[in-house]
């Protein structure tokens, strides 16, 4: 049985100026130990998906899903019982994701205590301290005793993300969701933090959903990749195949905009035009698609299975939803 199963998940934000359909009928499943990458440009609904899975959407958001289960638990109704110990999420901005008024020690202890309470174990400060130090070592923080007594503003961005990972490990979740965890970091730190993620996930045999707008980063860590555009899955398949042989024109464009690759070709073949999803008939990507043709605006293409992959493009079967 898959760890996470999502079937036709849609999310709509109701704001004063109207409704935004941020996710449309997203379906996927995730096995134990698997790492799924979610890529797509800004506004494509990546964060919305992550927040929906961890039950953190604001109240104005309307979630609909045929099914959204985690280890057989329905996430729509019973998210509280799997928070932290089941699903743990690391946010994009390291500088705001920890409570600025609490020491790292207190925040780690809180996480350890949640796990102890759930497992009906007693919480012991001394043991918690030892455990916290072990965890900080595991995420390669060099001076764990010192870091424990610090406040978040005394840590660097990379250190904070490591502390977040340590906090995740403290709760021993089955699924780790990371929403662009390295975007706010400089290149060197980025690589280091990325390798911590890789290590931790391998060693602990956790599943992970790794969100990024950068295909290059996704290719280093993910088993499978899901490409989102306008809140819809455009392409999904194993990382190596998607990268080697992108089928959807949007995926092709994304690969084209990886910097070092396009430099070789002498020019930056990024995607033309601006991201927008309003007032478009048919395929949402059609206004920017270099291969656009008549059939593209007839309707929204179906997500077709092609060579063990899913692709939403009429080039692989002219069928509509």
């Amino acid at each position: 049985m898959a760890l996470l199963e999502v079937e036709n998940l849609s999310v709509e934000y109701n704001t004063k100026s109207g409704c935004v359909l941020a996710l449309r009928n997203v379906s996927f499943s995730l096995d134990e130990g698997e790492v799924l990458g979610i890529v797509g440009e800004s506004g494509s609904g990546k964060s919305t998906l992550a927040l929906a899975l961890s039950g953190l959407l604001e109240r104005s958001a309307v979630i609909k899903a045929h099914r959204m289960t985690f280890c057989g638990v329905d996430l729509l109704g019973n998210i509280e019982s799997v928070r932290g110990t089941g699903v743990f999420m690391v946010f994009q901005d390291p500088f705001s994701s920890l409570n600025p008024l609490m020491k790292i020690r207190q925040q780690l202890f809180e996480a350890i205590k949640v796990r102890c309470d759930r497992a009906k174990l007693s919480f012991n400060e001394d043991e918690a301290r030892k455990e916290a130090i072990e965890l900080l070592k595991e995420v390669r923080i060099t001076d764990p005793e010192d870091v424990l007594e610090r406040y978040p503003h005394q840590l660097s961005g990379g250190q904070t993300q490591r502390v977040m990972i340590a906090m995740a490990l403290a709760e021993k979740p089955k699924l780790l969701i990371a929403d662009e965890p390295t975007t706010a970091l400089d290149v060197i730190t980025q690589a280091q933090v990325l390798s911590v993620f890789k290590n931790v996930v391998n060693r602990r045999h956790m599943s992970m959903i790794f969100i990024t707008h950068d295909l290059a980063v996704a290719s280093q860590i993910c088993d499978r990749i899901m490409v989102l555009y306008g809140g819809m899955v455009q392409e999904m398949g194993s990382t190596s195949e998607v990268l080697k042989d992108p089928k959807h024109p949007y995926t092709l464009g994304l690969i084209g905009s990886i910097p070092n690759k396009s430099k070789e070709e002498g020019e930056l073949s990024s995607i033309k035009g601006y991201y927008t999803t309003t007032g478009i008939r048919g395929c949402l990507f059609s206004p920017r698609c270099p291969f656009v043709r008549e059939g593209c605006t007839k309707g929204v293409p179906r997500l077709n299975a092609v060579d063990g992959r899913l692709v939403r493009c009429i080039n692989y079967g002219e069928q509509y939803e």
Partner: peptide, 23 residues
Amino acid sequence: DFYRTAIMKGIGRRRAIYVHALK
């Protein structure tokens, strides 16, 4: 984000509100 972290950790809404957010 720190409030979302607190909720996400599973410490309970009440503690997240009256300890983390309040302070």
